[in-house]
Every structure is written in structure tokens, then in C-alpha cells.
Amino acid sequence: MSKNTRRMAVLVAAGLALTACGTTHENAPGASSGTAPAPKACKGPSGKFTIGMSQANLAEPYRVRMDDDIRKAAAGVPQFTVHYSDAAQDNSKQVEQVNTFLTQKIDLLIISPNEATPLTGVVKQAYDQGIPVLILDRKVDGDAYTSFIGADNVDIGRQAGQFFAEKLLPQGGKVVELKGLAGSTPAKERSDGFDKGIAGKNVSVIATADADWLRDKGQQQAEALLKAHPDAQAIFSENDPMAEGARLAAQNAGKADLPIVGIDGLPVPEGGIKAVEAGRLSATFVYPTGGAEAVAAAKKLLIDCQPVAKTQTLGTRLVTKDNAAAVYAEFNRG
């Protein structure tokens, strides 16, 4: 065999190995340096795999539920061992935790980034090492990852805006808005979507405040907003914990009946669906955690040796007083 023939055989074999592993790097042209990194070999059903789950924080009930959903799904895959980390809303800490996972030679990374830009580099580093990367809920910059799993936040925001314009304030009105952590992609996307939903409807956002997705900060910021804008007729909160804080602020301001809408719709006793059923929130939108879907994608990549979609968009639904009990029962059936 000539030198050129041997070189061609090596390249063909490498290409076959990449296809067999089933990662979706080929769906991300130019994701890192224009060349998809060679992934680790897919070991199939006989393999044992270590997965690192990097969580932005565990102060939000939604993120606790996400980790719980991953644990529950992973328990059904005996080949998987999952290690968890909590960045506590600290970008530097999350970068350090992901680097620790890489040092530990994990087979796959699941991450819900605290903020997009600060986590982009370490996510790309993992991807460039051939480690499949599944991003949940919050995005990073660029496309140096294997798959993003999450709902369409722009669409959820748009639906929320339409609900305000059509149901809560059909004659028009003034809204104050509680935003999530500024550098996290859902905060911008939900706000952008809300603006689209109220466009041309005589509904206006007269003030906004960042409350970092947290209930206590939501209450503090809502108190300040309502004091500065006593003419506000409703509150749009980008998640349910901030909305619950806003309800306390409204009560303290003598506006116990002020319409408040959130997002998350967790099907747990302390979650948004029950808050709507109890009348504390006017509505919420179900925002799936993607935990079960992430484990399914990991199984497909590492065990089944199949590719996964670059983007997996999860569904949502509006929850109001009329359907809250039924939605809650549906999620908790069986």
C-alpha cells in the first residue's frame, strides 16, 4: 500500500468512526474552529458512562426540579453515573466546576448555564475535546455544543403578551415587568417575546426591574416598582418565584387583586400551577425542565450510537384558573 493510499484509508476510517458515534457535531458547521472534533467512542449497551450535570443554581425551585428529573430518568439507565454541581449563580464557579468535570474525564456534559457569554468558552472547550454537550434551558453564544434542549422563550413571552392584551387588559393598560438574570438568554427572549405580544394592543410596559429569578428579590423589586408607578395595572414576571414575591408586594401596597402572570408552571404543591389554582397568580406558562429529554439524548448518543437534533424544542401551555386543576392532575397522573 502506498503512503497516499494509507493516508486515505486512515481518513475514511476516522470519518466512519465519527458517524458511528452519532454525535451531532456535523450539524454545527463552524461551531468551533471550522472542524468538528473527534468524539469519544460510543461504547454501546455494555459501556459505563460518567455524566457531569452543571447547574446554574439551586435557589430556584425550577432548577431543583430539573436535577430531580435528571436523577429520575438516569435511574432507569444503569450504565449512567451522574455527578451534580451547583454554581450558586456564580459564573466563575460554574466554569471551575465544568473544568473539574473535564479533569475527571466525563463522557458527556449536561449544563444549564448561569449566563451565556461567561460560560461559552468552557462549553466550547468540552465540545472541542469530543465530549458531547447538552445545553438545557439557557443558551451559550455560538453553536459549539451537541444539542440545545428547551422551550421557545420568545414564543412563551409572546403568548404572555397576548394574554395580557386579550384577557387581562383588553381595553389597554400599563404593565410593570420583573426580569430574570440579565445575562441569561431566557430573560432577554421572554422580554422580547412579550413586547411582540403586546405590540399594537394599547398595552405598554412602563417600567422593568431585574430580580434574578429569585422570589425575595422579586418582592423587593416589585415593591419599588409599585411605589414608583402606582398607576400600574398588572405585573408580568418572567418566572413564578418572582411572581409570588410580586404578589406579596402587591398585597403590602394594598393591591391584593393586581393581575400577575408568571412562567414555569411546576406541577408541585408549591409551584406555579397551584398558585394559579389558588388565585395568587392570574396565569402561568408550563416551562419543561428538559431533564428527562437530556437523559434520553445522552442514552441515544452514548449507548444507542445515534445522532440527536441540534435543537430540541419543548412544548408549553397556558395555565389559568379554568384549567389549573386539570393540568396539575395530568402532570401527576401515575
Rank of each mutant, 00 (worst) to 15 (best):
131 I>K: 08
133 V>Y: 05
134 L>E: 03
136 L>A: 05
147 S>L: 05
148 F>Q: 01
151 A>W: 03
152 D>P: 05
155 D>P: 08
155 D>T: 14
155 D>M: 15
156 I>E: 02
156 I>Y: 01
162 Q>R: 15
163 F>A: 00
163 F>H: 10
164 F>R: 02
167 K>L: 02
169 L>D: 00
171 Q>M: 06
174 K>R: 14
175 V>N: 09
177 E>R: 14
179 K>M: 15
185 T>I: 03
186 P>Q: 04
190 R>A: 07
192 D>A: 08
192 D>Q: 10
194 F>R: 02
195 D>N: 15
197 G>P: 06
198 I>S: 09
203 V>Y: 02
207 A>E: 05
208 T>H: 13
209 A>N: 11
209 A>V: 13
211 A>I: 06
217 K>D: 06
217 K>L: 10
218 G>E: 00
220 Q>H: 07
220 Q>C: 11
224 A>E: 14
230 P>K: 13
230 P>F: 14
233 Q>F: 08
233 Q>G: 11
233 Q>P: 13
234 A>M: 14
234 A>G: 15
235 I>F: 11
238 E>R: 12
240 D>G: 11
241 P>T: 01
241 P>L: 03
243 A>K: 07
250 A>Y: 07
250 A>I: 12
252 N>I: 07
253 A>P: 09
254 G>K: 03
256 A>D: 10
256 A>I: 08
257 D>Q: 14
257 D>S: 11
259 P>L: 11
259 P>I: 02
259 P>Y: 07
260 I>T: 06
260 I>D: 04
261 V>C: 06
263 I>A: 12
264 D>C: 08
265 G>S: 05
266 L>C: 10
266 L>P: 06
267 P>D: 05
268 V>A: 09
270 E>V: 12
270 E>I: 13
273 I>V: 11
273 I>T: 03
275 A>Y: 12
275 A>C: 13
